[in-house]
């Protein structure tokens, strides 16, 4: 399994906004532990909020990385806000809508809105919001021994990033 929590990018407004989507499938193993059947009732698979936060972090991180053509290593530094008001179940889709609030050499502050789509009707409904700060790790290395290659935007992301990535040499 790959650590990818978005399926596709729907919209990219350079330097400003990135929207990504994830379809939640019952084929995902993790859903069967969250929550499995127990003495308190039958299994109730649903998308963990922590992984929705990761999906938003990947969306916002790609947006921040794209500003400098993925030359900087962009790492999640701090989640200043994460609010989830509703659950997401298999068969539903999640939309991550990330915007940059502020960015400089040291890092970036982003806002995100998480929405859910029920294919049986109801349209998109906002179910959460986030504020995440990213650090440009090359500018804030603080003695950390990190690899020189860009381990953040590696091969895993290539299929999703498509045209956002610089062409292969």
């Amino acid at each position: 399994m790959r650590w990818l929590w978005i399926d596709a990018i729907l919209l990219h407004e350079p330097h400003t906004r990135l929207v990504a989507i994830k379809n939640v499938s019952l084929a995902e193993d993790h859903l069967h532990q969250h929550f499995e059947a127990g003495s308190d009732g039958p299994a109730q698979p649903m998308m963990p909020a922590s992984l929705m936060l990761e999906g938003m972090a990947q969306t916002a991180g790609i947006l921040v990385g794209s500003v400098r053509q993925f030359k900087e290593k962009v790492v999640l530094a701090k989640v200043t806000e994460a609010l989830f008001e509703s659950d997401v179940f298999p068969g539903q889709s999640i939309r991550y809508d990330a915007t940059i609030e502020r960015m400089d050499d040291m890092g970036a502050s982003t806002k995100g809105v998480i929405s859910r789509f029920d294919h049986r009707g109801g349209g998109w409904i906002d179910i959460g919001r986030t504020e995440i700060i990213f650090s440009h790790v090359d500018q804030n290395r603080a003695g950390l021994d990190l690899p020189e290659h860009n381990f953040v935007f590696g091969e895993n992301f290539r299929a999703i990033l498509g045209g956002l990535l610089p062409k292969r040499a």
Binding site: A77, K78, R102, M106, G107, I133
Partner: peptide, 9 residues
């Protein structure tokens, strides 16, 4: 250390 960036913003 990362809070300092947050405080600046």
């Amino acid at each position: 250390s990362i809070d300092f960036l947050d405080i600046v913003f």
